[in-house]
Amino acid sequence: MNLRPFPEWRQTRFTRRLTRSFTHWLVPLLIILVWQVAVSSGRLSTRILPAPTDVVEAGWRLLKSGELQRNMWVSFWRAMVGFAIGGSIGFAFGLANGLSRRSEAVFDSTLQMVRNIPHLALIPLVILWFGIDETAKIFLVALGVFFPIYINTQHGIRSVDPQLVEMGRIYGMTPWELFWRVILQGALPSIFVGVRFGLGIMWLTLIVAETIAASSGIGYMAMQAREFLLLDVVVLSILIYALLGKAADSAARLLERVCLAWHPAFQEP
């Protein structure tokens, strides 16, 4: 059987990408279809799961009232600010402790001890400190994001090939050049691992914090809907979290592919 009836048509890069992204979405689409059929046919009670069409309808309703955009924006803003703060501090400590043994001796063991406290366990304390305003959520997100970025930055810098560093010295690179052209570039793959881990933790922290202590945001919207038994809004909120998480991860991957174009793992075939 000939599986490739139009070989020259199939070969263009655009169509290959199109086919690939369609393949990625095949299973999710199938699941939604089965879900819709199960609910419409009455096999699955709407008290357990609303139909996809109901969820879309709820989304449309909230979009028109402006509630959806407002809550999404609030959640997005919290996530980004928390990530920026926690990520920068983690990156700074990772650089310092990766580059300097003395800095590591002073800070590392303390940071490792703090790391063993699950940051979500601090929620009651954080509520007592900051109440349920923005600071509380941003603090928790920043704390959660700090560790993966710190650890992976430090690890990345430590694992830079010392032979390359020696080569840089022999060829008369200044300390700044050595840092910028050799050490940081060598640490970048590991830093990206930290960023992607951090993004996962960022959404998780935000979901928990918003459902427990918030007066706005997607998590708050879900908790409100639960009070009024609006199952479709609850499901909508969950899906929005999933989409936001996916979008953040895709952005990180895109950035990774651009910055690590030299890496054998990212070479176009």
């Binding site: 032979q163 390359l164 020696e166 080569m167 840089g168 022999i170 060829y171 008369g172 690179m173 052209r181 050799v182 570039q185 060598g186 970048l188 690590l260 030299w262 890496h263």
Partner: peptide
Amino acid sequence: RVARVMFQEPRLLPWASVIANVEVGLGA
């Protein structure tokens, strides 16, 4: 600085193109 060295491993910067790697040899 008048001396240069070549090792058993090429020690090229993987994130720099071939020509950029050669330019590393020009130093300042």
